[in-house]
Design a protein around this nucleic acid. Structure first.
Lengths: 333, 333
DNA sequence: AAATGGTATGGTAACGGTACCATAGCACAG
DNA sequence: CTGTGCTATGGTACCGTTACCATACCATTT
């Protein structure tokens, strides 16, 4: 592995001069530049970023800590992150926590040891410890998708409250009065806000007979399936289901199919988070779509800005609007 | 940021002793261990992997270079990679090439500069230059999914030939004689092998009237859509379509729906690569499913083995069997 | 003519670890 | 009682860069 010194020797200059040429920093003449570049090429010189990073305290690397890359929502977020990062010369280390605090802690610890310049975090817990631990080490962090009470940190989220409000308002407008919300974990802020948004819609319509039953579970297909079984067993049976994320929606549709209930003839369904058009032959489900790619992109840009100018702006809480996409999964009553 | 020297000072030992305790290497007494660990904890010491890596020439980091994480096949592969890597204490840097040689070259260059211990590569081109360039720098590499003629390298692939053979044999068994293959790029080995596998099935049945028309395109939804339009315009019209990957299949189904052709009543469709059960409400398409997760896992294990013992075994070409999953997208003729 | 400042290059000392070698006590074999 | 080898600890140099400071030429300003 050739070093900058060998290149310097061959080009008959000092190592620092090679550094300047290759990093295009400071002054150097055209002649020196040519000589250095020729020498580097001849020796197949590959700069050692470890040494550079050790000296300069910058790794040009970000950590992306999310629950599960297998969920197309996160996949799309990840793609947005990767694109935004690579555009500014940063790489991304991918970490799946599966919502487990222990895995998250281990990954964060490794990322700090690797001295990443910043971390994009989807916190597995809504407690501020993880965020504070990162900040205490002087590493920049941006939280995505979730609220972390007690932490002073940049946050980029979809507007869960608004999306849920619109979905439920839409259902109420169609005449539905008994809606079952198939929610995520009670202690995750997105789940909480989707419940609140739905309840606000109920509050606005002022229909005394209307009611939203909330069932708490996990953001998974299996949980969606199970919650749907509970929901349809309610008496009187809800006329509409509100799935709090895409996996729950898939589980719900699977369960309804197994139960022989047609959508929307027998029961209406709405969901949170859209599926990419590349994965669905015929989009069918009415959803509140979050701008997943934009979320990753925005969060990364914010993080990179923080890295280059930590104190330039006060902490931000960016809220990206959701989009109500009405398809064929609901009918009027 | 506290250093090993500060910890050493506080514990009243030499820095090297701290290193030994924290890495659990060499000899040290229980008393020293306790003192060092206490000092490290009190100072919130976070080891600097950059310094460690610079000295030891190991980064505990892998590069994962694939076409597009957004394709659920690659998502699943990536998850397999990440799980296998993290289990052995390695992190993964994610790189999307979008099949572009320039992006691939740039990413590979950065990965080498960052001194990753190994690279998992889905080559954008079937030429061996990229692989050889990595190997010349002394970095281990395992190729996934594709064949790279001319390179001496470990490879983990799905058995495209077998999968295609089984799909076409299945169609022929149902009585289909005119099949259109909606293929990927002509210069990508997986596309080539899927064509060959199909042709082998034709050769075996020995039906003089049977014919497979091959249309080349991209592994994308749009291309699948366009190729389908071409395919159904053929006279006589094919009775079955063979989509060479999942995106092409989705594009094909979209096109057929737009054209008012029902599947399987009007035309049969088979595809390569399954979609995860978590993304599909009612699995419908008959496919040759590749073990995506296992591919990522196997490739990573192979890579890690190479890293720890480069010469232990000769280069391997692992071929993972595909699974024929018969659903409802084909009918007998 | 002296001062100023941009251009061009080099020397030295870190950055924070660990590889390698050295030292020394002590138990046990021969 | 010498030799051997295990246990326990330390010293020093080095991994490959770049931050920082220094030097020196030359053109322009005052």
């Amino acid at each position: 592995m050739t070093t900058i010194r060998e290149v310097a020797q061959r080009a008959n200059v000092a190592p620092i001069t090679v550094s300047r040429v290759l990093n295009n920093s400071g002054y150097f003449s055209q002649e020196i530049k040519d000589r250095v570049e020729a020498a580097a090429a001849e020796l197949h010189y590959v700069p050692n970023m470890l040494a550079r990073s050790l000296r300069s305290n910058r790794t040009q690397t970000l950590g992306l800590v999310l629950s599960d890359i297998t969920n197309p929502f996160w996949t799309t977020v990840a793609r947005g992150v990767e694109d935004a990062a690579s555009q500014q010369g940063f790489n991304v280390i991918l970490c799946n926590t599966d919502e487990k605090a222990a895995k998250q802690a281990e990954y964060l610890s490794v990322l700090l040891r690797k001295r990443v310049d910043g971390i994009l975090l989807v916190p597995a817990r809504s407690t501020p410890e993880a965020v504070q631990m990162i900040q205490k080490q002087g590493v920049q962090v941006v939280v995505m998708d979730r609220r972390v009470p007690g932490a002073t940190v940049d946050t980029v989220r979809g507007s869960s409250t608004q999306g849920a409000y619109e979905l439920v308002a839409y259902l109420l407008g169609l005449g539905h009065r008994r809606i079952a919300m198939l929610s995520g974990p009670e202690n995750v802020s997105t789940a909480q806000e989707r419940v609140q948004g739905g309840q606000q819609a109920f509050a606005m319509t002022n229909q005394p007979m209307a009611a939203m039953t909330v069932i708490y579970g996990e953001f998974t297909v299996d949980s969606g399936y199970a919650m749907t079984q509970q929901a349809v067993a309610l008496t009187p049976r809800p006329t509409a289901l509100f799935a709090a994320n895409n996996f729950i929606a898939i589980g719900a549709l699977k369960a309804l199919r197994a139960l022989g209930l047609r959508v929307p003839e027998d029961i209406s369904v709405v969901g949170f988070d859209d599926l990419p058009a590349s994965l669905v032959v015929e989009p069918f489900l009415t959803v509140a779509a979050q701008p997943a790619y934009a979320m990753g992109q925005r969060a990364t840009e914010l993080l990179l800005q923080r890295i280059s100018a930590p104190e330039a702006t006060p902490f931000q809480e960016v809220s990206l609007p959701t989009q109500l996409i009405i398809r064929q999964s609901c009918r009027a009553i």
